[in-house]
């Protein structure tokens, strides 16, 4: 099985944080549903991963310490995360920079701070980890829910599936409109 979706990867202390199709993986093991990653850092044995609207704190084993969303994180769309020289977690949003406290409970706005911002890994994702993702992704067969979901998303038959789903939808619109036309014509007679 080949994975055709985009995979975003960060390499942190020999751990691979990966994201594919709204799912977060640690070393190929599924962690949780998550939107596209914007940055990932490690801090005192805690892995911190951010998307544009969420931050998740993980143990190095991949257990969730806390998942923070709108009311727990600074306002704005997160662009990246990093660590300050003093080892505080920093968040870069559209226009502002914020620094979390050591417990990741509260934050304050900061200006012109130097930081090590997280960067996408330039290394190739190890094959063993890719195999783990494939196994997680394929699971133990497909559920009916997944089949129906994929059918509606046009994921069948690779790229042609999307065109096929569009074609079917257009066909249904055409048949419905012509059907209504015929019905109205019959009734008017």
């Amino acid at each position: 099985m080949e994975l055709e979706s985009e995979i975003i990867g960060y390499e942190l202390n020999n751990k691979w944080i990966l994201w594919m199709e709204d799912t977060l993986f640690l070393d190929g093991k599924t962690v949780d549903q998550f939107s596209a990653i914007k940055g990932a850092v490690t801090h005192q044995n805690i892995i911190i991963v951010a998307s544009s609207t969420e931050i998740i704190l993980l143990t190095v084993e991949g257990d969730i310490i806390e998942k923070m969303s709108s009311f727990n994180i600074p306002p704005g769309i997160i662009q990246n995360i990093g660590l300050s020289k003093e080892n505080f977690l920093l968040i870069k949003t559209n226009d502002e920079y914020y620094q979390f406290d050591k417990e990741f409970l509260q934050w304050e706005k900061v200006d012109g701070i130097e930081a090590n911002w997280s960067m996408l890994s330039k290394n190739e994702i190890p094959e063993s980890i890719m195999n783990n993702i494939k196994n997680e992704y394929s699971g133990e067969g497909l559920s009916l829910y997944r089949i129906i979901l994929d059918m509606h998303a046009g994921r069948f038959f690779t790229k042609f599936g999307i065109f096929f789903a569009d074609f079917v939808a257009l066909g249904l619109i055409f048949l419905t409109v012509t059907g209504i036309y015929n019905l109205l014509k019959i009734k008017s007679k």
Binding site: I148, H152, A169, L172, L175, T176, G179, N182, L183
Partner: peptide
């Protein structure tokens, strides 16, 4: 024609319902 239309209507419902069932309703932030 009526039978055909009924079938089309059912198809539409089947196609459209899943698009709305996963919406997130925020009642209060």
């Amino acid at each position: 024609t009526t039978t055909i239309m009924k079938r089309h209507l059912i198809c539409w419902i089947i196609l459209l319902v899943p698009q709305f069932q996963f919406a997130e309703d925020i009642y209060q932030e």
